[in-house]
């Protein structure tokens, strides 16, 4: 359950931005999670809610965008969506795939009142 620690990192970054930018209240936090990031979105939402109760971030929501995995075949350069974590080129069947997206774990934006 490392989502708890990930949620703490999101809180740390948000509080830092609140102070730096003099923000009154945060309504939502935009998060980008790649499907191969190893982070479970619903566990993250649960953790975030649990640790922000009775804090300045109480009631703030995570708006999570899930990013599918995409790869480029190093042999034939085909760009494709990596479905079901099968890292095999659908064109030439090479397994030498460079992952271009799907590992994201980013805080993207804050929505304020």
């Amino acid at each position: 359950m490392h989502e708890l620690r990930i949620a703490e990192s999101i809180v740390d970054i948000t509080l830092r931005e609140i102070e730096r930018r003099n923000i009154a209240a945060v309504k939502s936090i935009g998060i980008r999670i790649g499907v191969i990031s190893g982070v479970n979105p619903s566990a993250l939402e649960f953790s975030f809610e649990a640790i922000t109760t009775e804090t300045p971030l109480a009631g703030a929501k995570l708006k999570i965008e899930e990013i599918p995995a995409r790869g480029i075949c190093r042999s034939c350069k085909r760009n494709f969506e990596v479905a079901e974590f099968i890292f095999v080129c659908p064109n030439c069947f090479s397994g030498d795939i460079e992952l271009k997206q799907g590992e994201e774990l980013d805080i993207v934006y804050l929505e304020t009142e």
Binding site: I6, S9, I10, D12, I13, E17, R21, I23, K27, G30, I31, L105, D106, I107, V108, Y109, L110, E111, T112, E113
Partner: peptide, 15 residues
């Protein structure tokens, strides 16, 4: 009014 502030930072940037 809702305002959107761009952050664009890795959550684990400190790590």
């Amino acid at each position: 009014m809702t305002q959107k502030i761009e952050i664009e930072e890795k959550v684990l940037s400190e790590n």
